[in-house]
Design a protein around this nucleic acid. Structure first.
Lengths: 352, 352
DNA sequence: AAAACTTAACTAATCGATTAGCTGGGTTCG
DNA sequence: CGAACCCAGCTAATCGATTAGTTAAGTTTT
């Protein structure tokens, strides 16, 4: 591997001149510049980032730490982030905390060691402690993505989870459903909690309540959603509609519905927040709220690069995106059905 | 950010001793070792990778360059690779060549600049040229993943594409289908070509031929598959069954089928190679061949780490994994149906 | 024409680690 | 007893770039 010295020797100039040519950092006469460029080509020289970073104190590396790489939602974030980061001249390191706070801690330590210029973090756990990652120096520029952590002063990019839960719920209510259930994420995570809160608010404002036996929370995974959905739906008087807090969970719920011999939307309506892209040809098509993932990711990268450039965090900025409802055919209006008697533990009132 | 000198000063030892303690590279008396460790803790010192890499000439970085990050197949590769790479003590850089050879070339130049210790590459294009990436030194350890490039001497990890195409096709033939069609990937890519060849071989061995108007190839994308599937299915005598060469394309085909008002498997059977994980609750469930993606990824990382350790490529190793058939309900047996009349151009041999 | 600037290029210090080579004190052995 | 050897730890060179500071030549000013 050729070094700057080899180039300097070959072009018969000093290393300073080579550096000046490469970085365009000082005026170099056309003649020498040409000699240097020729030498660079001949030796197919590429400057060592290690050396450059050591001197400059940065690395051109941005780390993206997601909570669960197996979740297609985060795969799309990776896709969008790679493009955004590359457009700014950085490269992207990927880490998976797998929803485990101690793994997240290890990852952040490594991010520091690698002297990444910044981190986009989907935080797990509710502690902000390990985010103060550099007691004796300035902390690594950080943007929290999707989730927030109480008391943290990083920039954040999130969606309005309350609104997402509310919109989906109102859609179900508008179809005439009153006995709703929900499969939501972990309640200590803002996305799980917020979406449930939105749902509760929507119901409350119509004078309805969500029975606690119709609320289930589980990890944002297909299999977790499958099992809690089964246990919810196997109850005597099952809900006529479900709100599911994530696209991946919706798949698990769909599978549970299918395995129980139920039909969607015939027997049960399902609305979700987020979906799996590309499944428009499969039935049923989910009714869901979507959020502008690419815009969110671009914004997160923009905020991060801005922090890096200004060399320290300014007043924390919290950017919130709005979800929008996309109607599929996984929800059906409820047909006028007299409820036989208060459902207590009693039988279901059959229709017509 | 504390440096090794700060630690040395605080512990009242030399930097050499600090280094020895940190790396366990020489015997240090318990007393000094304790002082050093205390200082490390107090200053929350973490060695600078930039400096260490500069000296050692490695970076603990492995690059994964995929052909299309938007394809869920590669998202799963990213997921598996992150875990495998972390287990070996490396960190993972992600790049997306987006099926563009010139982007791939730029990425490989950057990988070199970053002095990555190795690359796992899903090659695009058919040239091996830019893989000889370091004319004047030893090339970067490389493992080709999924696809191969003629004449290249890197290690490779692939699946048996011929077998994948053959198995899926034979399943369709066994159900009685004779008028088959296929949606495959680009034919200059080994995965597209190989799967088609497997299909052709399967048909040939039963004395059947695949009409060229029933063969369509397009990029490995949902939308590309959608449009070529439409054009294929809108032909007068459409096939009774399709083999689709990728999971993502199968989604596009499903959507085309739905938009054309056709029913799967009622009007048309569909088998594919690869699928989208987690869609088991949606209808229909794809019949497809699957390949052991996690094992493949682990093997690729293992081969790469091995190359890195031995410090140069040995005899190239080519590991081929076998696909296996997973039956869903997207295929139906063909019922004895008389074909009305020869469809203009060429007569079909009907089988009562 | 001497003083004062500019300019293009160079020399050498520097970033933060690793490590070859050295030192001085303690053992071992002929 | 002194040569030979060990050992723990230190000094200083080194990796490959950037860049502050210097120099010599040329240009402008007075």
């Amino acid at each position: 591997m050729a070094t700057i010295k080899d180039v300097a020797r070959k072009a018969e100039v000093s290393t300073a001149t080579v550096s000046a040519v490469i970085n365009d950092s000082a005026y170099v006469s056309p003649e020498l510049r040409a000699r240097v460029l020729a030498a660079v080509r001949d030796l197919s020289y590429a400057p060592s980032l290690a050396a450059r970073n050591l001197k400059r104190g940065r690395s051109q590396l941005i780390a993206l730490v997601v909570a669960d790489l197996a979740n297609p939602f985060f795969s799309r974030v990776v896709w969008a982030a790679e493009a955004a980061v590359a457009a700014w001249g950085y490269s992207l390191l990927i880490f998976n905390s797998d929803e485990k706070p101690e793994v997240e801690r290890r990852i952040l330590a490594r991010v520091r060691t690698l002297s990444c210029d910044g981190v986009i973090l989907v935080p797990v756990g509710d502690s902000t402690e390990h985010l103060q990652n550099d007691p004796d120096g300035k902390p690594i520029p950080t943007v929290l993505f999707g989730r927030t952590v109480a008391g943290d002063r990083s920039d954040t990019v999130t969606i309005d989870n309350i609104s997402a839960g509310r919109q989906a719920t109102e859609y179900l209510l508008d179809l005439g459903h009153t006995r709703l259930g929900t499969i939501t994420g972990p309640l200590h995570v803002t996305t799980g909690r917020g979406r449930l809160d939105g749902m509760l608010a929507a119901m409350r404002s119509r004078g309805l309540t969500l029975e606690s036996r119709y609320i289930r929370s589980g990890e944002f995974r297909e299999d977790a959603a499958y099992s809690v959905a089964r246990s919810l739906l196997e109850q005597p008087a099952r809900p006529t509609a479900l709100y599911v807090a994530s696209g991946l969970m919706a798949l698990g719920v769909m599978r549970a519905v299918a395995d129980l011999g139920l039909r969607c939307p015939g027997d049960i309506s399902i609305a979700s927040t987020d979906t799996i892209p590309g499944i428009g040809g499969l039935r049923p098509r989910l009714t869901r709220t979507e959020h502008p993932l690419v815009d969110m990711t671009n914004e997160a990268v923009r905020l991060l690069v801005d922090q890096i450039r200004r060399g320290g965090p300014a007043e924390p900025r919290n950017v919130v995106f709005q979800p929008s409802l996309v109607v599929g055919d996984s929800c059906a209006p409820i047909v006028a059905q007299p409820v036989a008697s208060p459902p207590s533990s009693a039988p279901m009132g059959p229709a017509p």
